[in-house]
């Protein structure tokens, strides 16, 4: 089927199988490989993207359900300049191997969109669907907290 998508503020029309996972469409048909696959079953959050403003696992969404939707991936978090959140991830050394980071950034952005001033507990809740095997989460929580502060200031 033909699917219309607005991804990172750009319009696309793709001809794909309707049940193809949004994750695969992004990576294979659009060529946006920033979104990662860690499990393919909704557990790890590496494939997190925004669909119409809400964060979901793109490995669980068939593309037919996104026809006409607005999608934001990690590539859409910044233009030329890094977002405050991305910068905070760099400054805090929040990324190690980096494979979980695209999804982590999306989940963190989703939190900050709803709650610009989260507690560390709220941050942990917001990223509980994003597994990271490298960092122990501390520096990721630090980065999100700092990004929130930067936003205020």
């Amino acid at each position: 089927m033909s699917v219309q998508l607005n991804i990172n503020n750009k319009d696309y029309v793709v001809e794909v199988a309707p049940m193809k996972r949004l994750l695969d469409v992004l990576r294979e048909d659009i060529g946006l490989t920033g979104t990662k696959e860690g499990c393919g079953e909704g557990e790890c959050g590496a494939c997190s993207v925004f669909i119409d403003g809400s964060v979901v696992n793109s490995c669980l969404v068939p593309v037919c359900q996104t026809n006409g939707s607005k999608i934001t991936t990690v590539e859409g978090l910044s233009n030329n300049e890094l977002s405050k959140l991305q910068q905070a991830f760099i400054d805090c050394n929040a990324a190690q191997c980096g494979i979980c980071i695209p999804g982590m950034l999306i989940a963190a952005q989703a939190l900050l969109d709803l709650n610009p001033n989260p507690s560390r507990g709220e941050i942990r809740e917001a990223i509980a669907g994003n597994l990271c095997r490298c960092t122990g989460y501390m520096k990721i929580v630090d980065a999100i907290e700092i990004a929130a502060t930067a936003n205020k200031g």
């Binding site: 490989t33 920033g34 991936t73 590539e75 991830f89 760099i90 050394n93």
Partner: peptide, 22 residues
Amino acid sequence: KSITRTEGRDKVTGKAKYIDDY
């Protein structure tokens, strides 16, 4: 010093290419 990660920028922008991205 806590220098930031050499490949940090690539890792927060989705530019870092892992094997499945090739």
